[in-house]
Nucleic acid binder design. Structure first.
Lengths: 147, 147
DNA sequence: CTTTCTGCAAACCCTTTGCAGAGAA
DNA sequence: TTCTCTGCAAAGGGTTTGCAGAAAG
């Protein structure tokens, strides 16, 4: 995981260099907060985290910084059900999501059998697959336990 | 298909009856347009269709009527990628979607192997599945052909 | 110095709702 | 007559952007 973050930081540095983007105090704060927090965070939440360290950082800057990370393919923008977008660390391996409708917990899973079957189905229909969204909604083990 | 629509109309009539909802010219226009059009339509598009027959019908009425059909489980509200919601005829059998990123075409597919594997994966992780969203994005046969 | 960034506030886009008059039953 | 429905316009909720001053290089 630390490995993943190191890789992400490198990739981001390269991207910024190549695009003539500048390093700023705000960007550092935002990127650090995002990496520390880890995953599936909204802009509102991230802004709150960043403002704990510097209350002067504005929402628009957080918004634009996450767009930047997305362009750099260091972050990935997800839109679950309704409402706000959520950002997660762009992963090297593909994964899908399990979302608990009771507590909001979001887990990731990966299953090669599913992926393969999906590819097969698409091919048989004559389509060409670019990417997909596979989200499973239900109850996590803790919420099942809790009733 | 005509069979499906007849069934939907019956179900809707029953629901409206049971809820003391009234029949109005606007609702008839909207429901007819929705049934004729078929599937994956946005409120904007549906409003435009309805207004070709009666320009006085407002967007809010279309909005509320589709909410009504959704409550009656005659229509189903989908939110693909970004932007607006889309409505489709509520199907008796479950299906998932194929979305063409070039022309916007939306097709449906159903694969029992996928469904079964999905259930298995969820169960093994200790979760309880309620419903899911499985959307495949890519190119449809025509757009592959067209290059 | 020059060019990019930032924070603010306003603009947008779509969805949702309050209200007063219109229309079913 | 009564109670629901409609159209309008405004309010919400999240995302995006114009602008003038701040800061990086």
């Amino acid at each position: 995981m630390s490995e993943q973050i190191r890789h992400a930081r490198e990739r981001l540095a390269k991207y910024m260099e190549s695009q003539g983007k500048r390093n700023t105090r705000q960007r550092d704060l935002i990127v650090d907060a995002f990496f520390v927090q880890g995953g599936h965070i909204t802009l509102q939440e991230l802004t709150r985290l960043v403002q704990e360290r510097d209350s002067g950082v504005g929402f628009a800057t957080v918004y634009r910084t996450m767009k930047l990370l997305t362009e750099a393919e260091v972050a990935h923008e997800q839109r679950f059900g309704e409402g706000q977008a959520r950002y997660e660390l762009a992963d090297l391996e593909h994964h899908d999501h399990l979302i608990c409708e009771s507590c909001g917990r979001i887990d990731e899973f990966e299953d090669q059998v599913l992926e393969d079957r999906q590819s097969l189905v698409v091919r048989q229909l004559g389509w060409q697959l670019k990417h997909h969204r596979h989200e499973l909604y239900g109850l996590c083990p803790e919420c099942i336990e809790a009733g």
